[in-house]
């Protein structure tokens, strides 16, 4: 267990009603690195991702056991404020979901509700910084007042990333952020992810092994609700220990 781990999961079990979706997951996620979660559909990687910012709480029948700590704090402790947690652990979803408001308002919404900007100038700076970080500033700086839903799919997803990082979270969770995008938009987002890791810890769920190999430093392979293997991306892709990992990477299962 490395000392630089920012997120650490211990014996995490997740149940949907009677069905167990995750079985005794132990995983450390290092700071300022990209960790990718891979595995076949239904293996529990998204479930694990969503337990890191407690989005699973929204599902009535979902139950989480074990502990997940972020910087040593148990996020499932009763005194934890979910709203504050989600401000520190941002999330980018599979399908771009900008609010049906202007580009500016999309980015400014988070800082506004969390009181991060003291003045209009502050807010303008946050919006500009976030859009620059998300690589979208050049494309939209002249039309900040136009609806975010009018952008192309790739731009929308970058807007969602800008919106997430505008709150200055410590961790950014990404749930298959490129699955609805074409290869060019995907390449832009992947580049962006690489740049963002200097400021944020990133956990990304992906179906594309190439993507995992390209963007991440660490990889965890999930299979049927179990964490089969985790380690540096290079090791996982070149010399996996477990046969199942090998089969998945070779394209034999999944």
């Amino acid at each position: 267990m490395s000392k630089t781990a920012i997120i650490s999961a211990k014996d995490v079990n997740v149940f949907y009603g009677e069905k167990q979706a995750l079985d005794k997951i132990n995983l450390d996620i290092p700071e300022n690195k990209v960790t990718s979660l891979i595995g076949p559909s239904g293996c529990g990687k998204s479930t694990f991702l969503r337990s890191i910012n407690r989005m699973n709480d929204l599902v009535d029948i979902c139950r989480v056991e074990g502990s997940i700590t972020i910087k040593g704090q148990d996020i499932y402790a009763p005194e934890v404020d979910v709203v504050a947690l989600r401000a520190k652990v941002g999330m980018v979803f599979q399908k771009p979901n900008p609010f049906p408001k202007s580009i500016y308002e999309n980015v400014a919404y988070g800082p506004k509700i969390h009181g991060l900007a003291k003045s209009k100038t502050d807010m303008d700076e946050i919006v500009e910084w976030s859009l620059i970080k998300a690589g979208l500033w050049k494309e939209v700086k002249d039309r900040l007042d136009q609806p975010g839903t009018g952008l192309s799919g790739g731009q929308q997803q970058r807007l969602c990333i800008a919106r997430t990082i505008a709150v200055k979270p410590q961790v950014v969770l990404m749930d298959e952020p490129c699955s609805a995008l074409d290869p060019i938009a995907t390449a832009i987002i992947e580049e962006l992810i690489d740049e963002l890791r200097s400021n944020f810890t990133i956990v990304i769920v992906t179906h594309s092994m190439q993507q995992a190999a390209r963007v991440s430093q660490r990889t965890a392979f999930f299979h049927l609700g179990e964490l089969v293997e985790s380690g540096s991306t290079k090791t996982i892709f070149t010399s996996p220990e477990d046969e199942r990992t090998q089969n998945y990477i070779m394209g034999r299962i999944g």
Binding site: M55, V83, R86, G90, I113, R163
Partner: peptide, 14 residues
Amino acid sequence: PPSIREAALGMGAS
């Protein structure tokens, strides 16, 4: 769409 709700909650909106 539920994605709007998720987006807002995912940003830390109550």
